[in-house]
């Protein structure tokens, strides 16, 4: 076997996911939140590819490609929202969106 075990890739993917989650929860700018979401998605992709390699089934890679496509769509919509917010001269601050406040 060449290189580290699959375990290592999985741990790495876990770190990526946790980092992305931290970014989503801590940052206030919606742009950065979107970027952190991308990191989380990439972490998941890495795990999928790793498992696909582990079991020799290529379906994991198929899944990862689908995830990539969906991530792209999500980024389109998210950025569209952010641009719309900017056009209405709203602050780009996630904490200011409190109309859900009960």
């Amino acid at each position: 076997m060449m290189g580290p075990e699959i375990n290592a890739y999985l741990i790495l993917a876990a770190f990526l996911f946790a980092t992305g989650a931290l970014g989503v929860l801590i940052r206030r700018s919606p742009l950065i939140v979107l970027l952190s979401l991308e990191i989380m998605l990439n972490g998941a992709n890495l795990a999928l590819i790793a498992f696909s390699r582990r079991f020799g089934e290529i379906d994991g890679q198929i899944f990862a490609l689908a995830v990539m496509a969906v991530a792209a769509s999500e980024v389109v919509v998210g950025l569209g929202l952010i641009v719309a917010m900017a056009r209405r001269h709203l602050d780009l601050d996630v904490d200011k969106l409190t109309t859900l406040r009960g």
Binding site: A21, V24, L25, I26, R28, V94, D95, L97, T98, T99, L100, R101, G102
Partner: peptide
């Protein structure tokens, strides 16, 4: 119970996590 609904997006995301 209403006090749970802070309106903060990040709080809700935290709840999910």
């Amino acid at each position: 119970v209403t006090q749970v609904q802070t309106g903060f997006l990040r709080n809700y995301a935290l709840a999910i996590a």
